[in-house]
């Protein structure tokens, strides 16, 4: 006997062209053991209301585009399952702390600007010529940054971060983790270009170590650890600049 239970999914709707504010709409959706929250939303779109708007792509926790608030908790909707909420119901809202474009789709522009600002690529003072071969790295050197390279830019951590919610000038968990990912890479020489951002109020000092970002991260990036490590780096930079001629990086 196939398992055919039904669950109520309450979805936030907002169409900026016709609505003055968002409202909730409830749909009844059949599900079984394998139905993800994302599949529940797709069922609504395919069978109940084709105008429901939300983002997804990979359906396997890789692309980072399907983040939603599920019962108030930031989740990848492809990695959360309806069975976990049964016999209760689900309340699905767009990711918190971002402007809504329509229904469950949010505007990520602010994050994308922050991502660019941390220069998330390997910076070399001078590229070595191809003839000299590849840049070598030991397993230890790779371990220094690998965890922070797993970020899929899903923005769950930004929805979890109360500081970003209070003041979105804060660079935020994922962008700072990616900043650290490159600063901690033995092949990179761009630290001095990134430190002014780390050292600023909008950099690591906007964080008060709430730690919820690391809890909700679906990729075990542990952004709180990256930010805190850079509080140490920024503190050293702050005091060492008085001691060494080129120790600190002035803003």
């Amino acid at each position: 006997m196939p398992d055919r239970r039904e669950i109520d999914i309450e979805v936030m709707r907002y169409n900026p062209e016709t609505d003055s504010e968002p409202h909730m709409q409830t749909f009844r959706v059949p599900f079984d053991e394998d139905t993800s929250v994302l599949m529940g939303l797709q069922y609504i779109k395919d069978h109940l209301d084709g105008s429901l708007t939300f983002r997804w792509s990979c359906r396997m926790a890789v692309c980072g585009s399907c983040g939603k608030m599920v019962n108030g908790v930031p989740k990848l909707s492809c990695k959360a399952f309806l069975r976990a909420y049964y016999p209760g119901k689900l309340r699905i809202e767009p990711l918190e702390h971002f402007p809504i474009v329509r229904d469950l789709a949010v505007d990520q522009t602010d994050f994308l600007e922050k991502l660019e600002a941390v220069k998330p690529w390997i910076i070399r003072k001078e590229e070595k010529p191809l003839s000299e071969g590849t840049y070598l790295q030991t397993p230890e050197e790779m371990a220094d940054y690998q965890q922070f390279s797993s970020c899929i830019n899903c923005l769950l951590c930004y929805s979890a971060c109360p500081q970003y919610g209070l003041d979105n000038a804060f660079t935020g968990p994922a962008a700072l983790s990616l900043l650290h990912r490159y600063n901690a890479d033995s092949r990179d020489e761009g630290k001095s270009e990134r430190m002014p951002l780390v050292n600023s109020e909008e950099g690591v000092w906007g964080c008060t170590l709430v730690g919820y970002c690391s809890e909700v991260c679906p990729k075990q990036v542990d952004p709180a650890a990256a930010v805190n490590r850079n509080k140490v780096n920024s503190t050293m930079d702050y005091f060492l600049r008085f001691l060494t001629p080129r120790g600190g990086v002035d803003s």
């Binding site: 600007e113 600023s200 109020e201 920024s234 702050y238 005091f239």
Partner: peptide, 15 residues
């Protein structure tokens, strides 16, 4: 991203 002034937080954070 416009402001980027060095924070004096390291003093208080160290303490």
């Amino acid at each position: 991203m416009k402001r980027m002034k060095r924070s004096n937080e390291p003093i208080f954070w160290s303490l």
